[in-house]
Amino acid sequence: MSVFFDAIKLLFPRSRAFNFTIDSDKRKLIKAIAVLPEDIRHEMERVYFDMFPETSRCIEDWEKVFAVVFSSKELEKQRNVLAALWRINKGGQSAVFLESMLTNIDANILVVENTPVSNPRQRSITNVAVCGNKKLCCKNAKAVCGYRIGDEGFSPTILRNDVSELYSIKNDRRFWVYCYFICKSVVRNNKNEILYIEKLQIKKEFRNYIEYLILKIKPVHTVAVMFIEWV
């Protein structure tokens, strides 16, 4: 700034009338002029970061770009969703990439590929048998044969790209390998088979974004089984 200030001074005549004292209006004017380049640089940096949804100050403009409207004005989540939409075409179709996109909305979301194959139709509730486990006593209510975990009244949502006809998961293991789960967690046996899938609660205003991301990223021939309760 001092170099710029000295350059401006040289534009004035060299006489006592144009000498600068500490409190003179002329000096204040020159200082104001000298500061302008720094202000411009700072504002340009802010404008540059407006180009990216995760740092932009103009969330409303980014909403228009992606044709979305947020009913919940949570700035951090708004930026995360927009950033996910921005990066969506660069990441591929893997379950890992899909999960990385969905966790921008909720950090607890898990994407599990159905390998080894497990029946997606029967995993909202399961029986747990513990006979022969010496660490659990018979009178323990959670340690008896036939103990059940899960929610009998909950049904997962089926999400697929082709909606031209009503679809239900076929009772045929040849089709189950093309299913994967969007959930909170899974319980596996010692063979690594999925026994139980825990549902996840998410605010309903994020449902459209989550379903859009899933349909956009996942391979079109696969089926997403969503263990999500919208609240």
Rank of each mutant, 00 (worst) to 15 (best):
S185I: 09
L82I: 02
E45I: 15
H221G: 01
L159P: 09
R41P: 02
A107T: 04
L213C: 12
V231S: 04
C138F: 06
L159M: 11
C137T: 02
H42L: 11
F49S: 09
A32L: 10
V65N: 03
D106S: 03
C138M: 04
K9W: 07
G146L: 09
V187M: 14
N140L: 07
E43K: 05
L29Y: 11
F175N: 06
G150Y: 06
Y212V: 00
R57D: 13
L85C: 04
E193M: 13
E60H: 14
I40K: 08
S2C: 07
C145V: 10
I33D: 02
S185F: 07
L200F: 08
R160T: 10
I105R: 04
N208L: 13
E113L: 03
T115H: 14
E54A: 10
W62Q: 06
S168C: 11
K9R: 15
V231Q: 12
V225G: 09
P116V: 00
R148N: 01
Y48Q: 09
C58R: 12
K73T: 02
I202K: 10
E205I: 07
R87A: 10
N192Y: 14
E38D: 14
A141C: 00
F52R: 04
L29S: 06
V177H: 14
L215K: 14
K139R: 07
F4N: 04
N208D: 15
K184W: 02
G132S: 04
M51D: 06
K191N: 14
F4M: 02
W176P: 11
C145G: 10
L82N: 05
V117K: 08
E205S: 08
V3D: 15
E113D: 07
F70Y: 12
R41S: 09
S168R: 15
Y167E: 06
I125D: 00
Y212R: 11
I30P: 03
L215Q: 13
